[in-house]
């Protein structure tokens, strides 16, 4: 079953998801991708909120979502 895309911010603590789509200016999106957050990567919410803390592979990073940059994910 194909899950619907939801905003990364709506994940609950401990919930995992795969990145579906990143919306924002090309260079901002590029930076996020260089960081390792790109379509298909598995992420796990660590601390919800804004900014939130997300786990990605062996590392954690924090990210503030605003109108300029939004990450949409498919919860798994």
């Amino acid at each position: 079953m194909v899950q619907e895309l939801v905003s990364l911010n709506s994940l609950l603590a401990g919930q995992s998801a795969r990145v579906g789509k990143i919306v924002g200016r090309a260079d901002h999106v590029h930076r996020l991708e260089e960081f390792g957050i790109r379509g298909g990567t598995k992420v796990q919410m660590f601390q919800p909120g804004n900014p939130c803390i997300v786990r990605l592979a062996g590392s954690k990073f924090c990210l503030r979502a605003d109108d300029l940059l939004r990450v949409f994910v498919r919860p798994s």
């Binding site: 924002g24 200016r25 901002h28 930076r31 996020l32 960081f35 900014p51 803390i53 590392s59 954690k60 990073f61 924090c62 990210l63 503030r64 605003d66 300029l68 940059l69």
Partner: peptide, 12 residues
């Protein structure tokens, strides 16, 4: 300026 996305690694 437009805000830059706030993206930062939290090291162990």
């Amino acid at each position: 300026s437009e805000p830059t996305p706030f993206l930062m690694e939290l090291p162990s």
